[in-house]
């Protein structure tokens, strides 16, 4: 990092902490610096630096490569498909993941089918500021990984840590396939690390982030932190919960999940998205069909409630899975 005034520096001029958002901004800066084919396109990403400041100062430093788009999600993604076909590596920032529904057609039917239909790569990254935050309501809170994962031809990443936000975004940009990068807004400012990572775990590998012998809790994105908190809560009750962070939901690293369930014999899959289908359903389905004999109890899922995402924090806190709700679900499986 040649210059990093997007970060907070300590009195001695060294980096004291990096947020999840800093990591995303830094990964984009590194990609712009290292690869002349990378450019960023999105609403307010230019001089303004993006709605969440994920592109702060980048337009100034990389003139002509961090470009404000009209409010046209369909055309933003369609443009990126064309640019990718022409050898560029566009990063499209959606202002909110929820708004990407307007650009779904270009992503699902165009970007996703290009390699299959033509044999030519379509390297592009769709960055989705995802997930709930207090007061965000029905249209600024959604988790879209279920929809994108359903379509063949797209990689869907859901990083939960500062390290992963940085290394996985770099990997996403370098991949020959279209990648949907679901970055969680709740983690943007509050999740911190001491420094940017020096090494990376391959993006397609799930990781055991907390070892345990009694039950496996498979989850991803912000829910990893809720699951780890729930695991801590259960320590006092004598249970050791193993938490697996999927990191990338498509492709799904079934082997790591099955290896964990082989150790624990029990499974809870947690997702912040809605309960009908999705990554948590896929995890349960795969374990049930490929690892049935590893199980000592019926596998369970925990997701948000099946309603639009509520505005008021009281309602929102009850709508999404939290450490308390995850702990309750874990107990249910443990006591079967």
């Amino acid at each position: 990092m040649g210059d990093a005034d997007g970060f907070r520096y300590g009195g001695l001029g060294f980096l004291v902490s990096v947020t999840y958002l800093d990591a995303i901004r830094s990964a984009q800066e590194k990609a712009l610096q290292d690869d002349p084919t990378v450019f960023i396109y999105g609403q307010d990403v230019g001089a303004f630096g993006g709605a969440f400041k994920a592109t702060k100062n980048l337009a100034k430093r990389y003139p002509g490569r961090v470009i404000d788009s009209p409010i046209s999600e369909d055309a933003m993604v369609g443009m990126a498909v064309g640019a990718a076909m022409e050898g560029m590596r566009p990063i499209v920032e959606m202002q909110f993941a929820d708004f990407s529904t307007v650009g779904l057609n270009q992503m699902l039917n165009h970007a996703a089918t290009t390699f299959w239909r033509t044999g030519k790569p379509c390297p592009m990254v769709l960055r989705l500021p995802s997930g709930g935050t207090p007061g965000s309501g029905p249209f600024h809170s959604q988790s879209m990984e279920t929809i994108y994962s359903h379509y063949p031809g797209i990689v869907v990443m859901t990083p939960a840590t500062v390290d992963d936000a940085y290394t996985m975004l770099l990997e996403a940009i370098a991949m020959p396939d279209p990648v949907v990068f679901c970055e969680h807004k709740l983690l943007y400012y509050h999740l911190k690390a001491d420094a940017l990572p020096k090494s990376a775990v391959p993006a397609f590998r799930a990781q055991v982030v907390r070892p345990g012998r009694d039950i496996t809790c498979v989850t991803y994105s912000a829910m990893v932190h809720e699951a780890v908190a729930a695991a801590q809560e259960l320590v006092g009750e004598g249970y050791e919960v193993e938490v697996v962070d999927l990191r990338t939901v498509k492709p799904l690293d079934t082997d790591t999940i099955l290896a964990s369930v082989a150790r624990t014999g029990r499974l809870l899959a947690v997702g912040e998205s809605w309960p009908w289908g999705g990554a948590s359903a896929e995890v349960v389905a795969r374990v049930a069909s490929e690892g049935f004999e590893l199980l000592d109890a019926p596998p369970k899922r925990l997701n948000a409630k099946d309603t639009p995402i509520p505005y008021h924090p009281n309602l929102w806190a009850a709508h999404r899975p939290t450490a308390v709700r995850i702990a309750a679900a874990l107990r249910e499986v443990l006591r079967y």
Binding site: A75, G78, V81, G82
Partner: peptide, 19 residues
């Protein structure tokens, strides 16, 4: 999907301009 190619051709042209 009708109309989809308008932005895609535009993307090719933007890429050419950047290159």
């Amino acid at each position: 999907h009708l109309g989809a190619m308008v932005s895609t051709v535009s993307g090719v042209l933007m890429a050419k301009r950047m290159k």
